[in-house]
Design a protein around this nucleic acid. Structure first.
Lengths: 110, 110
DNA sequence: TTTACATGCAACCAGTTGGTTGCATATAAT
DNA sequence: ATTATATGCAACCAACTGGTTGCATGTAAA
């Protein structure tokens, strides 16, 4: 998985909004996804291509529409490998702090 | 919290590497953090400022050194509000899929 | 077969990003 | 006091990003 592509894809409000919309209703067409976004269809298309390259959405051409489907796997992977690393895993922040002060090692990722 | 600033700050390999380094050893000085990165100290300083503005690192001037401390809170917040939303929360992917097919609503964030 | 609609593609452009170099400043060490 | 070290600041620059417009193409509807 291209972690960098995923982070870069997530680093834009409108793209996160698009994911949000697909989460709410999967399989929407380009035109449908454009509604309410303050930019041209072509701009939205570019954003969707970025999400697609990051493997966050998959597409399916059906008739003259292009359906967009959310793929949660890369987000899950980032959560697992990246986010959870920085979080208290056991009994809250105090326990975590204690671990750090004791110098206990942690697995590193990426 | 400025979610966008955090995502943008994370959308760069070297900046994630810097967080990694601070996770491994907190409180490092600018010079120490430069070691092994293929760019000038000034560039690293810029990256650190971006992390600082996103509230991902806090700094403390001590003598002629500037110490950098990791702040895991924004990452935690993103994990809570953003990442976990896209993840199976209960008994694995099948359960999650079942929920979606049943059209159960989920809280939305941002 | 026309006409309308959904999308694709390419050129272009302004603003941002990510890096550099050069110099200034502040603190520590000799 | 002098020298060395750690950092700060500003100007500059190439490359990338995020948007536009204009036109082409493919599919559905009348």
């Amino acid at each position: 998985m291209d972690t960098n592509a995923v982070f870069k894809a997530l680093a834009h409000r409108e793209r996160r909004k698009l994911l949000d919309r697909l989460f709410a209703e999967n399989g929407q067409s380009l035109n449908k996804l454009c509604a309410g976004l303050h930019m041209t269809r072509q701009a939205v298309s570019k954003h969707l291509r970025i999400l697609e390259r990051a493997n966050l959405v998959a597409t399916l051409k059906r008739g003259r529409d292009k359906e967009h489907y959310l793929n949660p796997v890369p987000i899950h992977a980032i959560g697992e490998r990246w986010i959870s690393k920085y979080q208290p895993r056991h009994l809250g922040a105090l326990h975590d702090l204690k671990n750090r002060l004791e110098g206990k090692g942690e697995k590193r990722h990426e």
